[in-house]
Computed example of a mutant assay.
Amino acid sequence: MSDTVGPERHARNRFGFRPFRPILAGATLRERLIGCLGALAGITLTGLICGWFFGQGPHIPLIIAPMGASAVLLFAVPASPLAQPWSIIGGNTISAFMGVLAAHFIPDPVLAIGVGVSLAIAAMSLARCLHPPGGAAALTALIGGPSVTSAGFLFPLFPVCVNSVILVALGIAFHKISRRSYPHVAVAMPANPHGTTDLPASIRVGFTPDDVDAALLALHETLDIDRADLDRLLRQVERHALVRLQGKLTCGEVMSRDVVTIGLDGSVARARELLLAHNIRTLPVVDEAGRLAGTLGLRELTLRGAFGLAQAMVEASTARPDQPVVALSACLTDGHTHAVVVTDGDRRVLGIVTQTDLLATLTRLLLAKAFAPPVPDAP
């Protein structure tokens, strides 16, 4: 019998016997607890507000059950396209209207529930507000009981739309207090910093958005993530893989140690003289204690030099000496940053890594790999 563990068995060992794993990529206990607290506040306050405005009685539901599912998305996965304000408000309201419409025109309840949910999916898709709890809102409109039936075409407005609007408003407030981004705004693809039509250097090589679309089409998959977020995630995966595979050289080993700097009390003329005399593009600015305050280049001096050295400098890109140098590839290829200043824990300048340093390092790594002797197969 072979002792080799196959990929299927390895997957079972990794995931099958560990409770609640996998749950969601990137999910942490802290995020789940925040989601629980948000749902507690959101659902409770939605019910209280509706009861305060419209009274409590058997004539109409105070809050509908699909709001619980909406709260799961809103507070547990706020970055999901399915959890955005228009998805929640539009998805629930439109779906409830489709359910009422099906109940009004189709006397057979079994057929009506199927048609209602089907129409809800179609309508949400056309309105670009797909929201899974919308299917439940359509069913509630069909089988919610006498109070829902008596409400008729008012049901999608109250309680469905009112519940949804209140829940979203509370969600926005809660996420702002908890310092989470909501509504979620996908990071836009970076533009070329030189104002040309070429793609930025950081994304010119490697996969393209068309490659992502082709892969999804080949896998027949639809992912609950924004396209721009997916692109950013895959590029971050590439960077982590590069660091893992080629991450032995550190910034401390590669950096230039004889760093040309200027004090905060220096003059603009002296800063320009240093940049030109040493043929450098980034000049670190240090305070009286020798701590890094910012950086300067000829561009900053040209645009803001008339206002003084402190007003012209910009925030410095920094790294630790023990950080893998290949981790700086994203920063040094963004079209703006020409050098990264290596500092200690007190922001004292230890060295500097430039684009030239990174290029030389990556070239060396590639050559070393290309000319390395082949590794013999294990017996």
Rank of each mutant, 00 (worst) to 15 (best):
P376E: 07
S164E: 01
L230V: 06
R320L: 12
V353C: 03
T337E: 04
R235C: 04
D198P: 02
I89A: 10
T333C: 05
V254I: 15
F75G: 04
L264E: 13
R179P: 01
I143Q: 11
G99N: 05
A293F: 02
P200M: 11
P22C: 05
S150A: 15
L142F: 10
A188S: 11
A330E: 09
V117L: 04
P146I: 13
G290L: 00
F17H: 10
L233E: 11
D210F: 12
Q355K: 00
W86T: 05
A368N: 14
P107A: 13
L303H: 11
A312I: 07
I60C: 03
A319I: 08
D213K: 14
V187G: 01
N279E: 11
A327M: 01
D287Q: 03
S181I: 11
L119F: 04
R14T: 14
V325I: 07
F75Q: 02
L101V: 04
A27C: 07
A79H: 13
A277T: 09
T363A: 13
A83F: 04
L62E: 05
P190S: 06
I113P: 06
P85T: 06
E238P: 01
V340Q: 09
I88G: 09
V100H: 00
A330F: 03
R21V: 15
C50N: 15
D224E: 04
L242E: 13
V110D: 12
S164N: 03
M255K: 09
H338P: 07
L24G: 01
E315L: 11
G38M: 08
S2L: 11
L365M: 08
A138G: 09
K248S: 15
E300M: 08
T149G: 15
L219G: 09
A339S: 11
K176C: 11
G290E: 02
V285R: 09
L249D: 14
F207K: 11
R180A: 00
C331T: 15
P209W: 08
D198G: 10
A370Q: 06
L219C: 13
